[in-house]
Design a protein around this nucleic acid. Structure first.
Lengths: 237, 237
DNA sequence: CGAACGTTTGATCTGTCTCAAAGGTGGTGG
DNA sequence: CCACCACCTTTGAGACAGATCAAACGTTCG
């Protein structure tokens, strides 16, 4: 088994995986073994490219990535973020093809994940992770389709907060958001100019702040109420 | 095995399933058996309700359904359509919870589907269907986030055309669209008033028409080009 | 015939985009 | 250590897509 020091980000990522499904000793062992062999990718580089065969399942250990769709005329839509503890290439069928590009938004550390035989606890964790991914896509759809700029922004920040909290990267309404406003705008279906104004409005309202890479959500309850948000729940035990 | 007459819609639905993955004799047999026992649901009734445990995998044999998200203040976003040959409750983990409501938009015929053991060809079909569903969600996100009203409408109609064509319900740029403009507007993130005007614009342009439940896409190539659409591809054989 | 429902039309309002320029800020090289 | 450059954020003014509110117009159906 691995020595005392895990790679950067590994504990956080493991925390999330372990929370998805109860893992037995052999599953944990397999994960530790996988994490022994990590890779790095600098910001702006592609992790996955649309239309190409998917390499295999990977786990993000640290850093932010995003699924991106490009429109021929230059417009760009960010489909979803991929955070530490979350998976890439988590498909079930043979020879899957990537449905979108995935790019590193910051420097990213990741590792390959082992295949899991059916009925192994690891398989269950993969499946639950996949269901959560779907839940995030649904949330993104309602954001873009029916919320105003302010609501969209608040809702997305709340979602990111909840997701980061799962691996201990957010707490007390605060977390690090290492992105430019332009990227965030592409996720929200807004222009960066309008996002800038929206953020100012939120500050004036006292709803939330995002400055110098740090987000502060002043009142989680109130914000959740304001955007009519329901927390993600994917399975019942 | 079943007699000569299959339930309404069954051949179309089977056509799509069989195209997803090569099915062996026993898989086809299992499907036929499942289809022997169909259920009906009238329009506007709920097939699945958000937050409740999912019953099991179901196959739509005929009619249209939709996944819907409701916002407390009355706004409504239609996440995706569920068409004949497509699946409901197609999840992989234990005790899954519904992530959205699903309502019947027209009268719907459906049947329960059997569990498929891993490595059974049926399992592969389920997985491919699931990947396609994800592809449709991504498409919906880019539509809502980055396309104009006219582009959104054209893009969605093209998608529906392709999906319906998979089970022989669309051909030559034409298909039946048995919905109200209001429902379509909820899918497109528009108001029904604006959709009405957008449809008129499309008619004037000669791009496409939708009257009395019938859609005509005049030039599939040109339309596809116009909205920068890439056809859905989910796996490579 | 009237009621319910869906579509169309008109007038007006507003949220967000567009284009352009001015400020920061951090990094790099001289 | 400063000057410069690249990149990000902010500000301003104006344009436009789409929302809103209201009413008229068709259908269909009891």
């Amino acid at each position: 088994m691995t020595g005392a020091s895990l790679p950067r980000g590994a504990p956080a990522a493991l925390q999330r995986i372990a929370a998805l499904a109860p893992l037995d000793e052999s599953a944990l062992q397999a994960l530790h073994k996988a994490i022994d062999d990590t890779s790095q990718l600098p910001a702006r580089r592609e992790l996955v490219s649309e239309g190409r065969e998917i390499g295999g399942r990977r786990l993000i250990l640290s850093g932010w990535a995003a699924r991106v769709r490009l429109i021929p005329d230059g417009r760009r839509q960010l489909i979803s973020f991929v955070l530490p503890g979350e998976l890439l290439g988590n498909c079930g069928h043979a020879r899957p093809v990537a449905l979108s590009n995935v790019i590193a938004l910051t420097n990213v550390t990741y590792c390959a994940l082992p295949e899991a035989a059916p009925s192994q606890p690891l398989r269950e964790a993969y499946e639950v992770s996949r269901a959560m991914e779907e839940a995030h896509l649904l949330a993104q759809i309602t954001r873009l389709g029916r919320l105003t700029a302010l609501e969209r922004t608040a809702d997305l920040l709340l979602e990111l907060y909840e997701r980061l909290a799962l691996c201990g990267l957010a707490e007390g309404g605060r977390f690090a958001l290492p992105l430019t406003q332009e990227i965030m705008a592409d996720a929200l279906g807004l222009t960066s100019v309008h996002l800038s104004r929206t953020l100012q409005l939120a500050r004036r309202n006292g709803d939330f702040e995002w400055r110098e890479g740090q987000v502060v959500l002043h009142d989680l309850e109130a914000l959740t109420q304001m955007v009519g948000r329901v927390p993600v729940q994917v399975s019942c035990h």
